[in-house]
Design a protein around this nucleic acid. Structure first.
Lengths: 211, 211
DNA sequence: AAATTCGGCGAACGGTTGTTTACTGAATGA
DNA sequence: TCATTCAGTAAACAACCGTTCGCCGAATTT
């Protein structure tokens, strides 16, 4: 039995990560489908052929980047949904978390926004799968709240998708705000909160008419 | 004074349109930034150099496609907003119009969805400008409704953006539904209506808390 | 100590790309 | 009728592309 990580494996992981990092850097300014394999390996300082030791395709690298970008977010979503505070506070916190996440992972989020409807099928599918999981998590979080009494699972699902949609478009909007323009940022935070409040208000009164 | 359209001009417009049509066809399966100039002219059956008689760039062709895709929609939006019927009916009608528009202009809408956050700055800007105009139109439509009494212009603007966002993401969702799957389509129509109702409900109760 | 595994390299392959050039020939205008 | 305009052409440019090949040398296993 060998070490779980010998020198060999560690070095391989290192250049694999270098490929991912360089890819993300280059993808800040262009599409995945216009990223060249040679362009990428040149940036890393490695021969073109070396790429194939790690990925069969640039599409595969894209899928790996999707996991990197959104994988760690599921825990965050579940944590937010599990919180028990009044809804106003929860909304403010959710918006703040989105804003912070975008700021700290700007290239990753930009990549996801670009490729969500981009030209590479595998990557589109990977992103769609992640968003689907987010909706699942939000839906089950909502189901645990007292406000959801009387809602069918299908209705909760639609509501969850609405929240996720809002999360995505808010994140995309934050991308367009320059890092050094706190005023525009605050404006966006304010708007995002208001939109969330409108949705939550609609949710609270959903059963009024049918009763 | 010459004719407004001689044979010369008419033929020029014709090949220009052929370039746009072929571009749209090719862009159903790929990004604008991965579309080749030669690939395009080959599809049209014209020499590569001919392209420059009509556009300086592929980016310029992209901008023209944005106008083609969204330009005619402003009238539709204004017409819908001007309608005076109960809100439930209006919601159903709006969703139906979106669904139909996507079905009849699928390649155009796909193009816009792809390039909204795509790799070509000029095209992104053109799309953002169009969406901005949509928000303006929706906002002024909302302002004319009695329900908007007590709303500040800023609040109306945020609400309008929420509606436009919803319109866009609904349209994008329709893109993923195969043309021969009316069941999935109906499911989507139903979900879109519900989301719109939630938003409209939230709007109706927005002033409850501050009063 | 010897055998094997394997990440990375350099070179070559046929093919593509965007752009410029000088040109042709039909539509246009004097 | 003659001169001009101009959409479209063919050819050439240098540069770049993804992929495959055999090989090297260090890490690993026997």
């Amino acid at each position: 039995m060998s070490h779980t990580s010998g020198v060999r494996q560690a070095q391989k992981r290192q250049t694999r990560q270098a490929l991912l990092d360089a890819g993300l850097r280059l993808l800040e300014q262009q599409n995945l489908s216009s990223l060249g394999l040679r362009e990428l390996t040149r940036e890393v300082g490695v021969s073109p052929a070396a790429f194939y030791r790690h990925f069969p395709d640039l599409a595969a690298l894209g899928v790996a980047l999707v996991e990197e970008a959104l994988g760690s977010l599921h825990g965050v979503v579940r944590a937010v949904m599990a919180q028990t505070s009044d809804s106003g506070d929860l909304i403010d916190r959710a918006v703040a978390i989105i804003a912070e996440y975008v700021e700290r992972h700007r290239p990753h989020i930009r990549f996801v926004a670009r490729e969500r409807y981009g030209g590479v099928r595998e990557v589109r599918a990977a992103i769609a799968a992640q968003l689907h999981r987010f909706a699942d998590e939000v839906a089950s979080g909502l189901a645990a709240q007292p406000l959801s009494a009387g809602w069918t699972p299908e209705e909760l699902r639609v509501l969850a998708e609405l929240y996720v949609d809002h999360m995505v478009s808010t994140a995309a909007a934050f991308l367009d705000v320059p890092a050094d323009d706190p005023e525009a940022r605050d404006h966006l935070v304010h708007a995002a909160r208001m939109r969330l409040r409108i949705i939550s208000l609609g949710r609270a009164h959903w059963l009024d008419e049918t009763v």
